[in-house]
Every structure is written in structure tokens, then in C-alpha cells.
Design a protein around this nucleic acid. Sequence first.
DNA 1: AATCTTCATGTAGGCAGTCTACATGTGCGG
DNA 2: CCGCACATGTAGACTGCCTACATGAAGATT
Lengths: 109, 109
Amino acid sequence: MNNDALRGHLDALLLSVLEHQPLHGYAIIESLQERSGGALSVPTGTVYPALRRLERLGHLTSEWATVGGRRRRTYRLTTSGHAALAGERSAWQEFTVAVGSVLTPRPTP
Amino acid sequence: MNNDALRGHLDALLLSVLEHQPLHGYAIIESLQERSGGALSVPTGTVYPALRRLERLGHLTSEWATVGGRRRRTYRLTTSGHAALAGERSAWQEFTVAVGSVLTPRPTP
DNA sequence: AATCTTCATGTAGGCAGTCTACATGTGCGG
DNA sequence: CCGCACATGTAGACTGCCTACATGAAGATT
């Protein structure tokens, strides 16, 4: 599944991955892929700008680090980010219930 | 919830509503709202073009009718439309599983 | 020594599809 | 006769994800 179906849900995914440990962009993409059982492969051109946006919104902070001669930008949830994650989770819940109730097959009348 | 979060899922919703009975645009919007418990209110400017697009794709056919002096364009699923609906349903399933598995809270390590 | 793959970040431009806002017209109830 | 529910549709903006590209270092392969 390499859809654009996750439009509007990407923020939730990123925040959720960063909930318990700070990670850099590349690791976030891997974590996303792993935790979804390989279903979600989000391209770098989607993730990096999204992280920038979330930082601009105050939900993330970032700092540079150099590990093994490679530069990493590590992102961390802010308090506002944790709150946003909670909001995204309940929004996701509502969303799936709403769509699910329309989509579940009904018996032929 | 009047999000654009349903981007990419609208086709599924429309096809699902039309699965067992043909309806016209206005009634589709009402049905969507009713079946989702009021959560989904999709504006006309979204639905009408989408129906046109689905017809162009061969998933719907339409015919005009006049009921009570008012003109209606009634849409009906084609065979291709039924197949598309099945595809959309399994895609939705995969999608929710994938996102859900990332979004479900994990115990703090 | 040269090349390839993995790790790592980022930008530019395109594009699809949803939204807002508007335009048009009928029937019915007050 | 005025407003509201019914009914369809278009134009243009906007959002935000995608493709494709650019850059560069470390380590493995040839």
C-alpha cells in the first residue's frame, strides 16, 4: 500500500512513533514501516517536510547530532506534541467509526 | 467532523451507499450523514464532481428522472462498480490495520 | 582504486482531489 | 410572496502528498 490515503493522518503517525523515544527522520521511516508490518512506506519527500511543519507548529523540537560521522536531526515531542497526539488519536477513532459504519456491508433488503 | 481526512476514501463511501439501491446526489449526501450518525457531512461541491468521476471510470451509470417536478440524476452501480467497492473495502481494512498498529498506544518502556 | 549500497537530509515542482463560494431553478408552507 | 427544503452543478483556491532530483559520508564489494 503506497497510497495517498493517509492524507490527513500522517501527523498522527509521526507523533505516535515519537511518543516514547526521540528519533531522526530516517529512523522514523523505518519505524513506521516496521510497526505497520511493512504496509506503510512513506517516502522521504513526504516525511522531512512534515517534520519541519510539525516543528513549526510547536509539536516537535529538533537537535543535530553526529553519529558515526553522519549528521542526524533528532526530533522529540513537546508537551504540545503530546496533546496533539491525544487529539489525533481520538480523531482517528471517530473517523474509523464513521467510515466503518458506512462501509460495513449490509444485508440485501 | 468536517475534515478532508476522507481524501481517498470518498469513492468507497459513495459506492457503498449505492450498493443496494440507486440514489440521486442529494439523497446520497443525506444517506451518508444518516449512516455515519451525523459525523460525515460531505458538501455538494465534493459529491457531484466525485459522482461524475466515478461514472467516467465506469463504476456508475446515471439517468435523469423527474419526481414532483424536480429533476434528479439517479446513480446506479455497474458490475465494475461492485468490483471496485470490494476492492475499496479490503483496502480500507488494510489501511485501518496499518495505521491502527502504529497509532495504538504502547506501554512506556 | 573504484564502485555500489546504505545511511541521511533536503528542495522543487507537479498533481489530485477536496473545499468554499457561487449560480440556478422548483415546490411548498407560512 | 417570501423563505426554506429540494436538487444540480461549476470555478477557483488550497492543501499537502508524491516524484524526482541533489548532496554527501561510511562501509562493503569488486
